[in-house]
């Protein structure tokens, strides 16, 4: 018993660790969401919550059902596989109510260079320019038609 008495402080220290451990487990029980680990190392409910979020993108088929004229122009150019909302942004609200929600006008001087600004890491055959030298900051649509950007020479001028 004397040995236990003289080691009493060690039991006190062990109790501090024990209380700390119990508190940690209690906090863990409260803080870790119930659905954590249901499917993997994440919160299982996150899937349902994400699925319940409002849809932002309408999808190109919805755009094309109204804008058939632009689809015709686009389908003949190099941007035929670029989805409408890749440039115009998410427009599900516009598709739901075209009269009251109007998409913002895009600034092509900013938009086009996101893909077409020259960069050594891009494949050589990808169209790219040093915008400052190429257009001097002028909007790209001054010369290019964004839905079908190739400049085709036609009789009497260029398109």
């Amino acid at each position: 018993m004397k040995a236990f008495k003289d080691a009493g402080h060690l039991f006190r220290l062990a109790s501090v660790f024990l209380v700390g451990g119990v508190l940690f487990l209690a906090f863990r029980g409260v803080l870790v969401p119930r659905s954590f680990g249901q499917y993997g190392h994440y919160r299982g409910n996150a899937i349902k919550e994400t699925a319940a979020l409002p849809i932002s993108y309408a999808g190109h088929q919805v755009c094309e059902s109204c804008h058939a004229d632009l689809l015709e122009v686009k389908s003949k150019g190099v941007h035929k596989r670029v989805a409408c909302e890749a440039c115009h942004g998410p427009l599900a609200t516009h598709a739901d109510d075209p009269a009251s929600v109007q998409p913002a006008k895009l600034d092509t001087a900013v938009l086009c260079v996101r893909c077409h600004e020259a960069n050594l890491a891009k494949p050589k055959n990808f169209p790219q320019v040093v915008s400052a030298e190429h257009s001097g900051g002028a909007p790209c649509e001054t010369c290019h038609q964004p839905h079908s950007p190739a400049i085709v020479a036609v009789a009497g001028g260029s398109q």
């Binding site: 004397k2 008495k5 003289d6 080691a7 009493g8 402080h9």
Partner: peptide
């Protein structure tokens, strides 16, 4: 930690 035992043995 509430223990003041500093005996030689402890």
């Amino acid at each position: 930690l509430g223990s003041t035992n500093i005996s030689e043995r402890s």
